[in-house]
Amino acid sequence: MYTILEKRRLAHGIQEYTVEAPLVARAAKAGQFVVIRLHQRGERIPITLADWDPDRGTITLVVQAVGKTTVELEECFQEGDALADVVGPLGEPSEIEDYGRVVCVAGGVGIAPIHPVARALKEAGNEVICIAGARNQGLLFWLDRLSQVCHELIVTTDDGSYGRKGLVTEPLKELVGAGRVDRVWAIGPAVMMKFCSLVCQEAGVPIIVSLNPIMVDGTGMCGACRVEVDGQVRFGCVDGPEFPGDKVNWDLLIARLSAFKEEERCALERYRELLKEATA
């Protein structure tokens, strides 16, 4: 049973779930993800692990409510409820070694999955600088947790309501421009990862990104998650989710993310209507 043991609101539309999944917790490594399904009529969606506790047999997922499934998770699943399915850990783990000085960039809800990566990099002996950005202060979370797994934390908001005003790419540009950055990790919206990759490419610094294509099974079977990396078709689920950012065909990835836009809108609308009827 994949019971939700704890549910905590982190920011507007962002929840943290501690879920019972002992087999996943035992095997999990930084950079990996799980596929979850809410109920018997649910779809399978991938979520990158934010944390795990093998002793307690739990995993931590941080989920932003954006579509029907994630909205339903936020509104209808409380502590004590169980998810129908949790499978993982899937994907290849991050390639953690002592690179020297590493910058970890997180955009929005990407703060959660960058956390275990930064922690592993720090444990491996790297000097780790984290940059965390969000649209405004209300969308920031886990800054305390993040500061514990890095040597320096830079925070940005688009509107300047917290930390530095501007986008994450600005401090990133300064850091890689000043030299002495051996590697960059970026996790966040595709557009943010694309621009981080451009910054790093110009500066000649290797960058790793964690891609979030549409998936069905998550085990290499369906090919829905195919992405183009260095001109080659790769599967996000089994070859990734992490790839060198400067080699990713971003426009293709971004286009494919909208493959079911119309259906996603329709599903969310229908869910809202049904919910309204049920509570009326």
Partner: peptide, 14 residues
């Protein structure tokens, strides 16, 4: 995933 019964089932197909 029973996409032929979307949106009753959550998985879409086009």
């Amino acid at each position: 995933m029973r996409a032929y019964r979307f949106p009753e089932y959550d998985t879409p197909i086009r």
